[in-house]
Design a protein around this nucleic acid. Structure first.
Lengths: 322, 322
DNA sequence: GTGAAAGCGCTAACAC
DNA sequence: GTGTTAGCGCTTTCAC
């Protein structure tokens, strides 16, 4: 069953059926109604493939996902899906491994299967991106900073986000603010530490190494970090955990010791995961929904900026007592 | 640049170019070489869209992802990507929300954008699936059991997997084996508990409720569960945690108390996440790679079975002392 | 071996 | 308003 069959059954030409299908004007109301009737009766749905060939588009956006998954990228993918679907686009997804091994660039970009490509691979190199760009399609890179802006990128300002959060704590008047960092070698962790130090500096506090503990982003490590901090003397008046999971571990330890939050120790996290709302945890939210939307808009050429940086958003709840 | 241009440049007809592109026989070797030469020189890549229209296929498999993501589905998606790519297919991905709200069934299935659909939504209903099936494309449902097999499904045998694991511990001679379950209302958790009880029964042990603790699949909950277990008396000789995260929490607690693993308490988990290897944790692996492969084969009609059930795989490491 | 020509199912000028 | 027709870029049958 194709557009010709419908045309015959409705007693019109296929041009008219096409007009009706695409809600174009210049069709008499009664003709339109008759055509719809036949379309409904026949349960007809036009072939997207033929339509795409005719229009020379694919309605597909390619997405390359990183090999290792933290949940962050699933969320991002979800918000991209929402935006893409709203705009009538499909998401063609693959993982970086397949992308590299199996000539994704050639297969997808050059052959016209996708109109643009969103790349989410922290380990991507400038050369790889340039290789992908040579097919003449739009490419957008997420969560990766290059020294020169040769391709549109979209990043989160981690330094600013942790600066906002720690400043908030300091402005509230807390004398001592400790930090539980992620692994030393982790880039995000480093940026969050920088934001913390910058905030201290700007508020006339001096950096106290005894208020810094290293964790590994797991719940347990937050638990143990606070325990160590406490073992070294008095706990700081407020603790900034470099992610929510560690904050949760920290809260468990504090609660177990009967230490009141936020009356005795204020607590803040980073990420705003689902659970944080229930725990009333003050934290910073990465605007994932916004990022997905921006990525899609950017790959579709609706946005033109070279380097897009989104700010984290302070989420103030009871755990910081502010 | 299209197939006609290449044909002209190579001084042949487009039929010949098509034969060369598709590695068909009946082309003189020197003609073939000349055509390839032009294709390479021009950096030509045929339009997949046109090819698909001509062949009446789309080379796309649709995948519906669940709204909530546990990491399991990302892994599954990754293995499906691998298999699909190997078979020359693309994965068109969307999330259940978009799928429902925006008429995915009609848009994707009926319009011919995808040749089949893999559905991963734990909350999917029989009616929804039947609705999707009416477009005449193959549909495969993962991780969902229906009372009647009206659609091909692919599931993990959780009961069997935990049975295997607990049997292994019992066969090793451990007198008492405790369990830390997931949330009571969780279906997977229930199945794992059933496997545990079945193993006890088959090995002539009686079920001791004091050796059962409930967790919530988080690391901390495993930690606390063992603590509670210990508070109630002597710890069992071996503990089966219903997932690896809880096992890790349990291990942290035991190590902190200086209890030797596996000499004093043997430990086993479930899932075989990345970290488990490093911790030398005995566990059960869900064959995600195999599942992804099967799902793709099934949706492409390479497999015909109605109900596919895959078995978990015992991964024996040092933590169980066997 | 190779080429001409007829589709695949749709869109969009252009004519009426 | 509606129909005719020429593509979109490829595959494939059938002559030669």
């Amino acid at each position: 069953m194709n557009i010709d069959d419908i045309a015959k059954l409705a007693g019109v030409s296929k041009a008219t059926v096409s007009r009706v299908l695409n809600h174009r004007p210049f069709v008499r109301e009664e003709t339109r109604e008759k055509v719809w009737q036949v379309i409904r009766d026949m349960g007809f749905s036009p072939s997207i493939i033929a339509r795409n060939l005719s229009l020379k588009k694919s309605q597909c956006i390619g997405v390359i996902l990183p090999e290792i998954e933290t949940g962050f990228y699933s969320e991002l993918l979800k918000s991209m899906d929402l935006e893409a679907t709203l705009r009538g686009y499909f998401l063609l997804v693959t993982f970086s491994h397949s992308a590299r091994e199996l000539g994704w660039g050639e297969k997808f970009l050059h052959s016209g299967m996708v109109e643009g490509l969103i790349v989410m691979m922290p380990e991507v190199s400038e050369v790889m991106i340039k290789n992908l760009m040579k097919w003449g399609r739009r490419v957008v890179v997420l969560n990766k900073k290059f020294s020169k802006p040769f391709v549109p990128t979209l990043n989160v300002d981690d330094v600013d986000a942790s600066y906002q959060l720690v400043s908030h704590l300091l402005q509230h008047g807390y004398e001592t603010v400790g930090i539980v960092t992620g692994p030393k070698e982790n880039f995000d962790s480093q940026e969050r530490l920088v934001g913390y130090m910058k905030a201290l500096l700007d508020h006339g506090k001096k950096f106290d190494p005894s208020l810094v503990e290293e964790g590994d982003f797991t719940e347990i490590s937050g638990y143990e970090a606070v325990e160590r901090m406490s073992g070294r003397g008095k706990l700081p008046r407020a603790i900034f955990f470099s992610n929510d999971a560690m904050a949760m571990g920290g809260i468990r330890w504090l609660e177990k010791k009967g230490i009141k939050i936020p009356e005795e120790v204020a607590v803040a996290g980073f990420d705003d995961v689902e659970l944080s709302k229930h725990l009333r945890l003050t934290t910073v939210r990465i605007p994932i929904k916004e990022m997905g939307k921006i990525a899609v808009e950017s790959v579709l050429g609706i946005r033109e900026e070279r380097e897009i940086i989104v700010k984290g958003e302070l989420v103030i709840r009871e755990s910081c007592g502010c």
